[in-house]
Structures are given as C-alpha cells and as structure tokens.
C-alpha cells in the first residue's frame, strides 16, 4: 500500500472516509446529542480529545502488547480517557455535562475510536496516528455540526441559542424528537451518497 501524504491522511477523515456519513460508525451519539448545536459540538470535542490521545498512546505501546490482549488493552486506554473527559466536564463545564448526560461515558463504545485503534493506530507511527485521529475527529465534528444545525434551526428556530428564524416560523418539534434525528440523518446520508455518485461520474 503506497504511503499517503500527511495532508491526505488528514483529509480522508473529512469526506472520503467520514466516520459517520461513509463508514456509518458512531451513530449513537450522533443521533442522541444533536438536538442543539452546542451539545453536538461539545460531544464532538470530547470525542476528539479521547480519540487523539488514545491513538497516540496505542501507537506508542503497540509493540509491547501481545495480540491476544490488544482489544482489552485498547479498551482500558480508551475508557481511561473517557473517564477523564467526563470528570473534567462535570467539574468545569457543569451545564454541558448535564445536557450530555450519560452519553459522555458512552464515548467509550463509540465504534469510531476502537475502530481507529484496531485499523490504524496499532499499525502506524505515532505521527501518522495523530493525523489520522485528527482527521477522523474533524469528520465526526463536521457530521455532528451539520446534523445539529439542521435540527436546531428547524426544530427550535435558533442556532447556538440565538434566534435565527423570524417570528413567523413555527418550529418543527419533530426535529428535536428522536424521530427527527433518525429521519434527518437518513436524508443526509442519502445526500452524501448522491454527491458521491455524481462526482464519481464526472
């Protein structure tokens, strides 16, 4: 396999291998906390923290871990960083922690993180793993941003809490409900595939 340039190692996470839209990973948090843009971004940043640090640690110690216990070891590493993220949020960003609820600990089972350790960090250098993690995180945050923007603007008429739709607009409550999350993500996936097929053709 030819080695990619550092640039494309990062960019692939944004579109070609976008964890949510293309790889269909990390759906649980994507659906759960995208009711408002602020919670979507907060979750994205927390996941970024865990993904980048876990990838760096795993890439550093990969030679020391026997293959049979690698999954268990990765899990301990990931779980530790998730715990730290959870504690820091509770201590310094209490309102956000309340809004995200049990979904911060659930970052530990976000398939994106374990997936990247298994597929990349365990086989690549620390530097590349860092860039890969950064790219995947950016792609994830991008997906959360798009989904939560749609849901907040249409569901509450606001963006980051600021009124953006005029008084004439009656919010589509369904957008805030679970149903709205599912449907919006489904449509966004469809759009992503549509764009993909159109660009492939030309």
């Amino acid at each position: 396999m030819a080695t990619k340039s550092i640039g494309s190692e990062y960019l692939k996470g944004l579109w070609d291998e976008n964890p949510v839209f293309r790889q269909l990973l990390g759906m649980c948090p994507t659906l759960a906390v995208t009711g408002t843009v602020i919670t979507g971004i907060a979750m994205g940043l927390a996941t970024t923290f865990v993904l980048i640090l876990s990838s760096i640690v795993v890439a550093s110690i990969k030679k020391l871990i026997p293959a049979q216990v690698r999954i268990a070891s990765y899990i301990v590493v990931i779980a530790s960083f998730v715990t730290i993220a959870d504690q820091v949020l509770k201590a310094y960003f209490y309102p956000i922690s309340e809004a995200l609820g049990p979904y911060v600990p659930l970052i530990v089972v976000n398939c994106i993180i374990l997936g990247r350790q298994e597929a990349f960090a365990s086989k690549n250098s620390i530097g590349r793993s860092f860039v890969d993690a950064l790219g995947m995180s950016s792609g994830f945050v991008l997906a959360l941003l798009i989904l939560s923007s749609v849901r907040e603007i249409l569901g509450a008429g606001t963006f980051l809490g600021y009124q953006v739709m005029g008084a004439w607009f009656k919010p589509w409550i369904i957008m805030i409900l679970p149903a709205g999350a599912f449907i919006t993500l489904g449509i966004l996936l469809g759009i992503a595939l549509l764009i993909e097929s159109k660009t492939k053709r030309s």
Binding site: L185, G186, I187, L189, G190, I191, A192, L193, L194
Partner: peptide, 10 residues
C-alpha cells in the same frame, strides 16, 4: 442514494 442505511434510518 437512500438504499441501505438511508432508508433504514428514515
């Protein structure tokens, strides 16, 4: 474009 995951989510 909706085949598979898209329609499943809807």
């Amino acid at each position: 474009p909706l085949k598979g995951a898209g329609i499943a989510l809807i």
